[in-house]
């Protein structure tokens, strides 16, 4: 008889990395579907190209570096889809490919691959594309919803024009990147993430609340605060990017501080910065700070209680 010998535990939770990534992909689907519905075939092309490029980049790197190929863990696919959703539907194909390769090869693999990157790959790629090709990256069009006879019209982001109504913002009848267009779809995604236990509520809820409160404080207007959380990438960033495991803190209190400060930075950039790109930099800056937050805000450990309670 040959028996396997191992140390305990002998059972494991059925939730694997691959399954968690699958949950994220499923949670992204409503936003992706609404993006394609709003912007048409070009949006589908951008999303598809980003996904394929990211997976190819990951596969190529792991082959070249002679590492075990871990494309099957779906993490590259998640990066691809998130990056695609962060681009305008009019993004040229070469920009999508460059962004994908930058996300996977430079941001993720050069720093050690899955789990060791200190920035969110999709977000860092977005920041680089934005700095390199600002015109392409901010070439937003009004959603057409496949209506016949309506041409796509280039417009500025509503943050620049302040023209859209709250309902329009919520349902996605405004220009923007593919993923951020429908807030309803993003909230559906959040619900999926929470129900499957993929992310905890603290980061998304506190980040959005922080943006709301700080905008209210700085502008004195609750309407402007509501506008702030429904426009631009706040909701998408809070739900899908600030919650990235690798680049967000772990302990409860550190997560609260992280989300709160990210919200503050977003509002400061939006209110006082020279251009409306708060979400990307707000989250990236807090990504960098998250190992420090984990270090300085640890959980209380059992066995170090000060006084002994009376019976």
């Amino acid at each position: 008889m040959s028996l396997r010998i191992s140390t305990a535990p002998h059972v494991h939770s059925p939730v694997t990395t691959q399954r968690l990534m699958l949950y994220v992909l499923i949670a992204l689907l409503p936003a992706a579907a609404m993006g394609v519905y709003a912007f048409g075939f070009s949006a589908l092309l951008v999303l598809g190209l980003a996904c394929v490029s990211c997976v190819c980049a990951e596969f190529l790197w792991q082959k070249i570096a002679r590492q075990p190929v871990r494309v099957g863990d779906l993490s590259a696919l998640v990066t691809g889809l998130i990056l695609g959703l962060n681009l305008p539907p009019t993004a040229p194909w070469w920009m999508v490919v460059i962004g994908s390769f930058f996300a996977i090869m430079i941001v993720k693999q050069l720093f050690g691959g899955l789990g060791d990157n200190f920035l969110n790959p999709a977000l860092a790629a977005r920041a680089v594309l934005l700095a390199s090709w600002p015109v392409h990256m901010t070439h937003y069009v009004t959603p057409t919803f496949f209506k016949a006879g309506v041409d796509a019209v280039a417009t500025a982001t509503p943050l620049a024009t302040k023209g859209a109504s709250l309902m329009e913002l919520f349902l996605g009848q405004i220009p923007g990147t593919i993923g951020e267009v429908s807030k309803a779809a993003i909230l559906a995604g959040l619900l999926i993430l929470l129900v499957t236990g993929t992310v905890r509520w603290r980061i998304p809820v506190i980040l959005v609340a922080s943006v709301f409160c700080w905008t209210w404080v700085l502008t004195g207007s609750p309407d402007a605060a509501l506008m702030a959380i429904l426009s631009g990438g706040v909701l998408f960033g809070a739900v899908f990017m600030a919650t990235d495991y690798v680049t967000s803190p772990i302990t409860n209190f550190a997560q609260i501080v992280y989300a709160f400060l990210a919200g503050l930075i977003i509002v400061l950039i939006r209110q006082y910065g020279s251009y409306p790109e708060g979400v990307t930099y707000g989250i990236l800056l807090m990504n960098i700070a998250s190992p420090l937050l984990d270090r300085f805000l640890p959980q209380r450990i059992y066995g170090y209680q000060k006084e002994v309670k009376k019976a």
Binding site: S13, V15, L20, D73, L114, G115, Y245, V246
Partner: peptide
């Protein structure tokens, strides 16, 4: 497989 810092 690599740690993804999920915090579980």
């Amino acid at each position: 497989s690599p740690c993804i810092h999920c915090g579980r």
